[in-house]
Design a protein around this nucleic acid. Sequence first.
RNA 1: GGGCAAUUAGCUCAGAUGGUUAGAGCGCUUCGUUUACACCGAAGAGGUCGGGGGUUCAAAUCCCUCAUUGCCCACCA
Length: 879
Amino acid sequence: MKKKLTNLPPTYNAQKVEQDIYAQWEKGGYFLPKRRPNTKTKKPFIISLPPPNATGTLHLGHAMMLAIEDLMIRYHRLKGEEVLWVPGTDHAAIATQNVVEKKIWQEEKKTRHDLGRETLLRRIEEFVEQSRGTIRSQFRRMGASLDWSHERYTLDEGLSRCVRMIFKMMYDDGLIYRGNRVVNWCTRCQTTLADDEVEHRETTATLYTFRYSKDFPILIASTRPETKLGDTAVAVHPDDERYRQFVGQTLTVSFAGKELTIRIVADPVVDREFGTGAVGVTPAHSQADAEIAERHKLPAVKVVDEAGAMTDEAGPDFAELPVSDVRTKVVAWLRKHKLIEKEETVPQNLTVCYRCETPVEPLVSKQWFVAVNKLFELRQDTLGNVRTEKGAIATLKVLMQNAVESGQITIIPDRFQKTYLQWIYNLRDWCISRQIWFGHRIPVWYRPKADQPGAGLEIYVGIEPPKVDGWEQDPDTLDTWFSSGLWTFSTLLKQDGTAATLENWQAESPDLKRYHPTSVLETGYDILFFWVARMVLMTTYALGEVPFRTVYLHGLVRDKDGRKMSKSLGNVIDPVDMIDKYGADAVRLSLIIGTTPGNDVRLYEEKIAGYRNFVNKLWNISRYILTTTTATDAPPKAKTLADRWILAEFEQLKHVVAKHIDAYRFSPAGEALYEFTWSKLADWYVETTKVEGGKDAILRHILRELLVLWHPFTPFVTEHIWQLLGESKPLISTNWPKIREVESVYEFSRIQETASAMRNLKQKHGNNLEMLYIVPGSWHETLATQRTLIETLGRSKINFAEQVPADVPKRVLDGATVFAMAATVDKKKLQTERDELERYITTLHQRIQSDNFSSRAPAAVIAKEKERLQQAKKKLKHL
RNA sequence: GGGCAAUUAGCUCAGAUGGUUAGAGCGCUUCGUUUACACCGAAGAGGUCGGGGGUUCAAAUCCCUCAUUGCCCACCA
């Protein structure tokens, strides 16, 4: 085992080793949560993998997510902590149903109605099963050390039961209600959409300023004249003198063949400056108008239906015609009767479906909602230090706010904290019912009231269907984010716990106790609202604790020109192609180094190729060490200055890398490793070993520990080399290296100068200057000459320049780069440093002491500043 | 309308609490195939840190202002 290796290929072949290594890890059970004895940290480290959509294939967003999460997971695992990384998939209701329906249409020209509910669901499940297999194998290709035994799917029975349980809980608490409200309706998807499932597109529209009829006293403006058939009022500002005389009147007009009853109401939301200062109120087709209508008790007339056609209410001329046709007809009617005062083209934010970009039709509809502003009684102590306890009164909004404001959840980067709070501030009741078939059926059953026929419906809400006949289940399904909002804890419930009840489900789930709250939630900032906020809402409500401690938001992966990657643009980079070509390690590095949380990254093939080159460099450093040194148990002992330098640098590196990773600064951690490995170890130290023999112990030692440091970034190549080193246990399960005591790095500085500048150097550092000559590269002379130089001058403590042997040509010396290390402490520099530090400590101290700071700054900030003060004091002592 | 971010080398980007001469990768120029590596090595060019003002012993970093770009939120009919 302990012998030199020969015949290692000069080029690292990732394709050849990666899949075997992954299989070996998985087979060895290294992904299962396990705490190593003697580990100080008792708390487990948990990440719930943001579940990819069941129809998806691996894209760069996933790749980035996996690279970052696997980095954290492996780091904590190496530190001996018990780590759990829960994988899974999301059924992604609308998205998935759309995909499958489209596919079926293309292949068989059948719609979902041709197939029927049962058949469509079966077809979707078949499709999903296949997709999940693809995703699983692709996630493995990335090297993700997921605990596959914990894999979950949002439609698993355990998770579905959890959905029904939470639904019932919220219903019982009065937080879920059914109501007639204006919702966003997608006429193509044939379903409601939540407020954040709609997007806005900048377009232009024609704004018509007109009267309903000749005798109507007020001009109104609209870009959608056809909806005016549903108007029941005109709203004006209460202080608007122009219209004051009309307020309170009810007028009847004949508009485009339909008789309208219009009340004139005064409402402060109306902007006097905009348009005519009067708004035609359409309560059934505008959320804003619905709110006005509610205040003034106005009726709502629904003139557009779910298919995007006019209803009977729109009058016989228009009923059942598509909205766009009716607009043309209404405008024509207005023109004919000379009612249009003005037509202008205005910029408009068109609201469209985020899935299919179809313009959204706001319409009034009977749906299920989650009430975010309703007061309810907490079921349990909630959120630790926040002023809440069992029985206290709160709203869901307050829970969401508290979780972040109290510092129980930290968002990285912190600017998103503001975004999050702002979003909650504007949040309205969440429409959770969807008119699609794929998903969690709403656990509500109806039956006609038995005693008085025709008197309406009786409602049953339950985890199980009603035991007696005669009940019919609500046909709708739940918004997919309802179930993914439960993800951090629904995945930890006992999967066979079918008997779980509202009373005992928490106690019955040991995993929930042990692994919740999770440590970090890592995801793209684009789903901060969709998902992250929903998880906070659901979890603080259901469990009385936060779902995670830290939210790490990564940016979006874009192409070289900063454009979004999309199939239509043809600029999509497939991560699997890149893995095939450059290896998973290179792909991972390209997504971690040079990226910062919350900021988009541009990725292109050259970048990945660059990191492939680095992986090969690491391979060749290892190859050199493996083939030229023998394994030894001797501890690494510094003999020459170069040894002392590299060992000190290495200890410094360990410190820096851990510090960065602990602070979620993955890119600087990777950069530090990269710099050490290539510029210090390979370019300088390894070169010295060629002329200064006897470095086996140091080289082997550094390589061994360096592989551990690199492992969270590049798991495959490090594991491969590790095993070539003859280690008995796989790298994945080894220990993170301890930091050893070394001479302070302040004692060394590396100086790179030309030989002719060396005299100045000597003057600067005095007689204590220790020099080491090495020849990094392009000398024209032979290795033997280099060796002579080093032997005669190398470790000289005196003025070497006068000792250059006569047979060394002057041009060699002048043209060469000299590697010199000053072992002296630069007293002046040290003093400056001390002064700065002292000043810094004074400043910090003053800041902390000041009333303004101590009374106003958040607790977390004060703690941080205090910690800084401690650190600075410690550092000063060290100097 | 409100908010957030970005603007640093030809390109893509780092620069934590202000602190030596502003960094990296790619690209470019010159040189070099010496037994870890040409997916390499050596040397080098290239920056008024978007403009202007201010605070400070010290500003890419903090403040004000302007410009450009991008994103998010919002019921302006």
